[in-house]
Design a protein around this nucleic acid. Sequence first.
DNA 1: TCTGGGGTCCTAGGACCC
DNA 2: TCTGGGGTCCTAGGACCC
Length: 415
Amino acid sequence: METAATILHADLDAFYASVEQMLDPSLQGKPVAVGGGVVLAASYEAKAFGVHGGMPGRQARELCPELIFVGGHFKDYQRLGDAAIKVLGDFTPLVERISIDEAFANVRGCTHLFGPPIAIAHAIRQRVRAELGLPISVGVARTKHLAKIASQVAKPDGLKVVDPEAELAFLHDLPVELMWGVGPATKTRLNAIDVHTIGQLAQIPGWSLERLLGPAAGEKLRALAWNCDPREIRTHHRAHSAGAQSALGRKPAEESVFRPVLRHLADRVATRLRAKSRPGRTVTVRVRFADLRSVTRSVTLDAPISATMILAEIAEVLVRGVLADHAQENIISLLAISVSHLDDRAQLQLDLPFGLEDEKRRPGARRGMARFMADRAIDRVRLRFGWESVGYASVALGGSRSVPDEFRELAEKDL
DNA sequence: TCTGGGGTCCTAGGACCC
DNA sequence: TCTGGGGTCCTAGGACCC
């Protein structure tokens, strides 16, 4: 654990919206929303009206009549997000990227080159502003949790340093929902016992907190409230799962609906698994009904898979099972496929065509090999001619998707 | 206020093994 | 042989994060 405040948390402000304002100066100072049907990101001017990410576009327009919708320059988001994180990397190799627009860094080892952490934080903000034209907030503290909270407090376009001597004084006045791990449900439970600040949470006896929130969450929040955060900067992560989902609006729960959607989802997921040579053993599907309740089904195979059609068929069997168990539901609003238990072996390997139940142990090697070769061929064609040039179900779905695939790709984590 | 997509972790019960 | 304990894996659901 660090003894000095050398952990930085850097977070680009209203990232997508800021990029749009930078690319088109006429948008500066104005309420901007990226997206259309759904708001993917809102500028600070739009947030002042109550507009926020995830909100339906219609509702956003009602809150803010002069709201300007822009299409979204997804390639630029990726490029500029990478460039901003790279600025951190110019100071230290100890960088942990959290998402497209956010990262931790530990500057403990480079202060002799660049000065104290506050000077480095200042330099990072200036460089991102000068070189990329984007506002970025930075928090500096002794722990990741505190650095993250500091950057939230610093927003927008600010810098906040938490001195090691003043940590609890800083932390305990803040509302509990600023803590990492306190979302709407936990906030409601804490508020119900009259806990509103992190300081109040810190005063709750451990056993009481664990009874309220469960052993893991209780212990974790109590530790964080007393600023015991042992987490180190981790420079490389391996993903534990990969998935894709698609909101459907309201569609009948019929094969003609779910089959093409599942193929498209399986295609997206399996292609990523193959690209990283990380097949997985557990297939999970999620079906959301009209009332937004959702049900999951999963199966764990004896061998990992990454072939598109095998994944699609297993997903289909699972979805049929869900629908059979909920025969009274005839409208579905979302389908999802996720593959977990990803193979950790680095080397490339062939897919074995395992299916469900009795198929679980039956090789059927010829069918599997044919599918594997077909997938490889499609992967190669796409590499040269683009995703839409060939595929199983993309054409059938073309255009009907609510969110552009470019946006989906931004959210994908490296496997 | 129920709206999009890609992830992580925790819980609880059951099966199974030692 | 009716009585203990520990560990691992699987499944389903929930909360949370960006």
